[in-house]
Design a protein around this nucleic acid. Sequence first.
DNA 1: GTACGATTTTGATATTTATCAAAGAGACTC
DNA 2: GAGTCTCTTTGATAAATATCAAAATCGTAC
Lengths: 189, 189
Amino acid sequence: MANTLIFKDIDFSDQVSADFLVDVSKLMKSQELPNKHILHSEGTICNYFFIIHTGLARAYYFKDGKDITAHFAIENSTITAIDSFIQRKKSRYNIELLEDTTLSYIVYDDLKKLLDDKPHYEKYARIFLENIYIDIAERIEDLLFHSAKERYAKLIQKFPSLLQRVNLGHIASYIGITQETLSRIRSEK
Amino acid sequence: MANTLIFKDIDFSDQVSADFLVDVSKLMKSQELPNKHILHSEGTICNYFFIIHTGLARAYYFKDGKDITAHFAIENSTITAIDSFIQRKKSRYNIELLEDTTLSYIVYDDLKKLLDDKPHYEKYARIFLENIYIDIAERIEDLLFHSAKERYAKLIQKFPSLLQRVNLGHIASYIGITQETLSRIRSEK
DNA sequence: GTACGATTTTGATATTTATCAAAGAGACTC
DNA sequence: GAGTCTCTTTGATAAATATCAAAATCGTAC
């Protein structure tokens, strides 16, 4: 659930940042898509970086036949098959919508061209990745040191609406437990 | 144990990359330091990015009074208090040497100045972070889907020398189990 | 070589979570 | 509103790992 606010750590008071925002906006295209729409399928290279305006998406993959949620993207969050988008390899992720959704997207080649043309914009890619790093490091610590119960509590504290909006099974796999265990946790107190 | 080869994904055949390497080299200073030397203490902002040439360092922090290893850096790896180095906040990590070590380091302000002067170098910061991302994503998957036994096996497969070089307790905390459990895993078969 | 401190192993038990199976509850179709 | 499908809960049991305590081993200083 990284990157809740896309450009949250960018100081847009300077000219370069303002220019960057304008140039990126020009590349972005908007779309409305229905629930269950597949944004990306595993085994293909992901060429899109999505920004969710309203609605909900999730990235998931299959591990020993089980459907595992790797990432949720709610309003004002971003999502892509990050393994593929970064490494330009076939992705192991699928991305699907869990609600009717309005989103924007940027095409990889357009973004790459922009960064090649204006290398000083690389700074924003770096900042974006730094933010991903911070989120993901927190998640590792969560997995190492918090019980299933604590991980669940933290998740709904951070994203209270999630519980009403997605299946238990998706939440359970996201925090690394079975659906049955999550059901029991929930029924306590 | 991210970033084993520092510049592994950089194509140095082009002129910009060659220039970058030269400029970074100019910023780097070398040092020999003894075992147990403290490279960084928690609660302070980390201004150094270390590259270990020979020897061994680890980053650790305290969680409920327990010493938890977050990262090992062996030969040709890098280490810093990444939370602090990225965010310029007080770090929760300590970094110590576990062997006599030769290393180089880059001062944050020097690196920042270089990136400000030559923004097209930001690309390398981005690539570095992408590599961190890939390592760390693998670690999450490890924690979610592999048993303690499997995590241990993977670790020593990747870094066979580690077992001879560091305490069991450090390895155990790195893979998220107790020392006793690791000892039992090791004594099996 | 003995003694001391640090590290690792072993033992007994408790806790957490998974697994497998089945029942219950909701939502939608006709 | 009966039937069907999906999602969630509940129950019984098993497996993995933690905890607490103590013993064994190792390394080093003297």
